[in-house]
Amino acid sequence: MAPSAEDVLALVGRAVGPSEWLVVGQDRVDAFARSVDDWHWAHNDVEVASRGPFGGPIGHAHLTLSLVPHLFASLVGFAEGEDAMFYGYNRVRFPTAVPVGSAIRMRADLVDVVDIGGGEQLTVDLTVEIDGVERPACVAQALFRHYPVRAPD
């Protein structure tokens, strides 16, 4: 049974995570470069990047951001007959580059949930961590909209 609007509204203050680790390999970085046509040497030229400021290739900042829906869905599941859709960001920062081959995971804090009539809007503080690195790869505040509807067949 899908939760009521009151159940979803009661999520304020809940912290979830961390997600499982996800390796950001060169194949993923190259696939992202193909999809957005961004072939900067820092991401896709291993030889040149090895002489650059990071000592090797790094994932695109927007690749890290594009993984947020996947990581968030692994933390917050919705029942049959409901769905959540990404609505936008209030703020996004990338304090640390993600070296190719490293693993990332995400933690989320639900800071606000409001009734929007026919659904709820969740404001979520996100932190994407890099395995073995103190500073996060990404900190963001995202907005998701939760609806008590099923995706069409």
Rank of each mutant, 00 (worst) to 15 (best):
A2N: 13
S4E: 02
E6P: 03
D7I: 02
D7G: 04
L9C: 03
R14L: 13
R14C: 06
A15W: 09
P18C: 08
E20W: 03
W21I: 00
L22P: 07
V23T: 15
V24P: 06
V24Y: 08
Q26F: 13
D27N: 05
R28E: 12
A31F: 13
F32N: 01
F32S: 00
F32E: 00
A33Q: 01
R34Y: 04
R34M: 10
D37W: 12
D38Q: 02
H40G: 12
A42Q: 09
H43L: 01
N44I: 10
N44T: 14
D45P: 08
D45Y: 14
V46I: 12
V48K: 14
V48N: 10
S50W: 06
P53A: 07
G55R: 05
G55A: 05
G56V: 06
G59V: 00
H60Q: 00
A61C: 04
A61G: 08
H62R: 04
L63K: 02
L63T: 04
T64K: 05
T64V: 12
T64L: 11
L65E: 02
L65I: 01
S66E: 00
V68A: 04
P69V: 06
P69L: 07
H70S: 09
L71R: 14
L71K: 13
A73Q: 07
A73D: 08
A73V: 08
L75E: 04
V76F: 12
G77M: 06
F78T: 14
G81F: 02
D83M: 14
M85D: 05
M85K: 07
F86G: 07
Y87R: 12
Y89A: 12
N90F: 02
R91E: 09
R91T: 04
V92F: 11
F94S: 02
P95Y: 07
A97C: 03
A97G: 03
P99W: 11
V100P: 00
S102C: 01
S102P: 02
A103I: 11
I104M: 07
R105M: 10
R105Q: 11
M106L: 15
R107V: 13
R107H: 06
R107L: 14
D112L: 07
V113K: 09
V113C: 10
V114Q: 11
D115S: 11
G118C: 08
G119K: 01
G119A: 06
E120W: 07
E120P: 09
V124S: 01
V124I: 08
V124D: 00
V128K: 08
V128Y: 09
E129H: 15
I130V: 10
I130E: 03
V133W: 03
E134V: 11
P136Y: 05
P136N: 04
A137L: 10
C138R: 12
A140Q: 02
Q141C: 15
L143D: 05
R145T: 14
H146E: 09
P148Q: 15
R150C: 15
A151F: 15
